[in-house]
Nucleic acid binder design. Structure first.
Lengths: 340, 340
DNA sequence: GTGAAAGCGCTAACAC
DNA sequence: GTGTTAGCGCTTTCAC
């Protein structure tokens, strides 16, 4: 089924049929003709050939979404938000998963660019990210989600880490904790670094002694890295009574480390995660964590991207959406210090 | 950067450059020429235009993967298996999520067909599935994963439900259970129906009294549906001592229902899930479940799809991969009946 | 308001 | 082996 077939059926020239079928140029065709063409297209089940159209217009009406890890439950709701909004605007969403591998990321980005994606939503950004910066320099419309670059060259949407960490630390302080540790996430990611800085700000704001607030760094956002980082912190002569983890998986690793040395959560140590992954409420103990409005983040990112596509050269807005603390069972008041 | 530019730089005709660049036709070009063309392409950073190529060859080297729900952790590993294998063969993987909505499925499938996906991997099949059957009739290469259609018209890869259920029931029987219930999944899905039938077979094989083995149907694979179905079963005068759930989420709903009426798992009732979602080991109690080789399922599906694409009209093979029971803390021997 | 014609970048059949 | 040529299906000036 090609445009020629439709044109023949409607007894018009293919050029005219094209104009009639196209929303934007439809008003340059006589109403009766438009109706005939539309009817013919409908009847024949005409589907325009994306390749031919793309070849001509250099537009694909497709957007690439680049994820670090499909298996991380943080991202599906973001994708859903993106997809819903883009579908309304007639765009297709092409999801790819880099598996946290920069080489795969480069390969997939090249693949999507070769397929002429009209824009990108990137959830894999590191604070220094040459690949992204190069693409932006090439004028490729692009929006970052969740993870940002240090250089604010690209529009971006993320959770408000500072507010999230602040409310979490405030919760711990209000429970009576004064010795609060932080298991920071990877420092080459804006999330890891931002939450770490926000934590430092928070202990200052609540006038906690820095010496009582140990910090350890997990080198990945997973349970193994969280476990390893937590072991060191818990082995200190006077471990903290509460731990703010860089994200939920690090928090789970921390719980594992506590189990190893017979520490109970929340009786001995309170733990807070970040992201509010599913199932957390069913754990033992149910994990207190900072909730991110994931679907909204996705939808806002999609809006920003459409702006970029339609008016190139706009400013690199950064949108931070509020997070809120979800209090569950992994936080409690510290026990009064007991003699050993 | 077009082919013309490369040809000009290598001082050959565009047609020759095309042959030199193309693996399959390279041997029809003098080795020296090939080298010159490849060098020029490399130097200029030439990327072939997918639209132009696709328009000419009617091939996209892209495969669509249609998922019912991205947020379901069952699917990401399958997608990963698919992606790894297809990338090796030079294919791009385009993932879409129907959100369990048949209308969205139809829209997305049409979108992918308009973009000339060379084939599809479908994880959304219902036992009766006109959309899939129509696409197959149209000669679109297609492989089903996990969920199959009743009509065996399409190649498919799934877990061996019968063996999985059988080993789970065997485990319960060996623990001493004789009254085992089944919370079946949706019967319009092959998984729900297949596990239900496998359960009936199993109780027959182990010579359990059908009257002691109640069956209830959950109308969706989620916790709410599991909760509702479980309530009825637990309200019976003599509830079963063990419950085989249609999948993990139904099992979680079952645990919720037990909590409502003060029943303990596994002391009062043992529960087994299906799929082995992540985090299950951390629940209270850790859920015994049937594990599916998800990544293998994805990889095998991709292989089958490549066969379909390269040799259309092959037979509709069905491949069932073994599942194994993962025993955790939600199953135990039944308590001796106690007087009330 | 409609038709004619050119061309997007590539490949493949054919001529040399 | 290499060059020539036509054309995939569409959009978009430009005439009329």
């Amino acid at each position: 089924m090609t445009l020629r077939d439709v044109a023949r059926a409607a007894e018009v020239h293919p050029g005219t049929a094209s104009k009639a079928l196209n929303e934007a140029t439809r008003d340059r065709v006589a109403p009766g003709t438009v109706r005939r063409v539309l009817a013919a297209a409908e009847r024949l089940g005409y589907q325009p050939n994306t390749f031919a159209r793309g070849l001509r217009t250099r537009r694909s009406y497709a957007v690439g979404v680049v994820l670090p890890d499909l298996a991380n439950p943080l991202f599906p709701p973001i994708v859903r938000g993106v997809e819903k909004l883009l579908a309304k605007a007639g765009y297709a969403t092409l999801i790819v998963d880099t598996d946290n591998d920069p080489a795969a990321e480069e390969r997939l980005l090249a693949m999507l660019r070769a397929r002429h994606a009209d824009g990108f939503i990137i959830a894999t950004a590191r604070r220094e990210h040459p690949v992204v910066e190069k693409a932006v320099a090439d004028g490729v419309p692009m929006v970052l989600v969740n993870r940002l670059t240090d250089a604010a060259l690209v529009p971006a949407v993320a959770g408000d880490e500072v507010a999230g960490i602040s409310s979490a630390v405030e919760h711990l302080v209000s429970l009576g904790h004064r010795r609060i540790g932080h298991l920071a996430g990877p420092q080459d990611l804006s999330t890891g670094f931002g939450r770490y800085r926000a934590f430092l700000d928070a202990i200052q704001r609540f006038e906690l002694a820095a010496a009582d607030c140990p910090i350890a760094f997990a080198d990945a956002y997973n349970e193994a890295a969280g476990l390893q980082a937590a072991r060191g912190m818990l082995a200190a002569p006077v471990p903290p009574t509460a731990i703010m983890a860089g994200n939920d998986l690090i928090a789970l690793g921390c719980l594992d480390a506590m189990a190893e040395v017979g520490l109970n959560c929340p009786a001995d140590v309170s733990v807070i995660g970040f992201n509010d992954l599913p199932m957390l409420a069913r754990l033992d103990p149910p994990l207190t964590t900072v909730h991110l409005p994931q679907e909204d983040i996705g939808a806002e990112a999609a809006k920003l991207l459409l702006d970029c596509i339609n008016e190139p050269g706009g400013s690199a807005k950064r949108l931070l959406l509020p997070c809120h603390l979800t209090v569950r069972g992994s936080t409690a008041s510290p026990m009064p210090p007991r003699p050993r």
